[in-house]
Simulated assay, not measured.
Amino acid sequence: MQTISLSKVIPAPIDIVFDEYTDHERLSELPMAISSKVTTPGHTEKNGLGAVRRLNAGAIQLREEITAFERPHLMEYRITWSFPKARHDLGRVEFTEVPGGTRVDWRTVFTVELPLVGGLADPAFKVLFSGVFKTVLHQVEKRSVARAQRES
């Protein structure tokens, strides 16, 4: 099992950062993404609890379900299907107000289940996914700061 933990302070209000992070279809704006779509809306809001999102990044594809959604402080998700096949134990993103903005703490625990190589590929996927998560947080920061400036 591999664990990725990232933290970033984004200079924008917590409500805006939470909204920008949880807008699942905006993942399609990432350079490595082909598409991102909410295939099942959440119970009380499109991107909320129970939502299912599908991300296509070509060689990597994921279907994830939102398993906890506590606006504006917490979102958890679980990968329910992936290519390549993976076991995903946790995806947790916490949002905390701090001086100067919002701290985002993102943690995920996974293992890739590739035939023949098994967990030997996990370290490479950890590096790959760490880079993707940093890119996601960078995009969320850009959108959050721009929106905060528009709304002020």
Rank of each mutant, 00 (worst) to 15 (best):
S144H: 07
A124T: 08
S152T: 15
F125Y: 15
E113A: 08
K126Y: 05
S144E: 10
E141S: 05
A148F: 14
V117H: 05
V127I: 14
A148E: 14
F133G: 07
A121F: 11
E113P: 06
Q149M: 12
R107L: 13
Q139W: 10
T96K: 13
P123R: 02
V145Q: 06
G119Y: 03
P99C: 07
T135E: 10
V127K: 08
G119K: 07
L90C: 12
K134A: 14
L116M: 12
Q139H: 13
V93Q: 01
T135Y: 01
F125L: 03
G100P: 07
S152W: 09
S152R: 15
G100V: 08
G119D: 04
V93E: 07
D122R: 00
V104R: 00
A148K: 06
S152I: 15
G101H: 00
G101L: 01
G131P: 04
G118R: 01
A146F: 09
P99T: 11
F95A: 01
L90N: 08
L114K: 07
P99K: 12
A121S: 14
R147S: 11
K134M: 07
A148I: 13
Q139R: 10
G119F: 02
V93F: 00
L116V: 14
V117T: 11
W106A: 10
L137T: 14
V98M: 04
T96I: 08
E113V: 10
K134W: 05
S152F: 09
W106V: 13
V98K: 07
W106R: 03
L128P: 00
S130T: 15
F133Q: 13
T96D: 09
V117I: 15
P99R: 11
E94P: 07
V93W: 00
S144K: 04
G119E: 04
V132T: 10
F110S: 01
P123V: 05
V104M: 05
D89N: 09
T102H: 03
R147P: 05
F129E: 04
R107S: 10
E113G: 00
L90D: 08
V112M: 10
F110L: 05
Q149F: 11
V112F: 08
P123H: 03
R150T: 11
V104T: 09
R150C: 10
V132E: 03
V132R: 00
D105A: 12
V109M: 04
T96Q: 13
T102R: 02
V127R: 06
H138P: 00
A148P: 13
R143Q: 10
T135C: 06
T135A: 10
P123G: 02
F129T: 04
L114Q: 08
V109D: 11
F95C: 04
V136Q: 01
L90E: 15
F110Q: 03
H138A: 12
L90V: 09
V136C: 02
V104P: 08
S144I: 12
W106D: 14
Q149I: 13
E141A: 06
D89G: 15
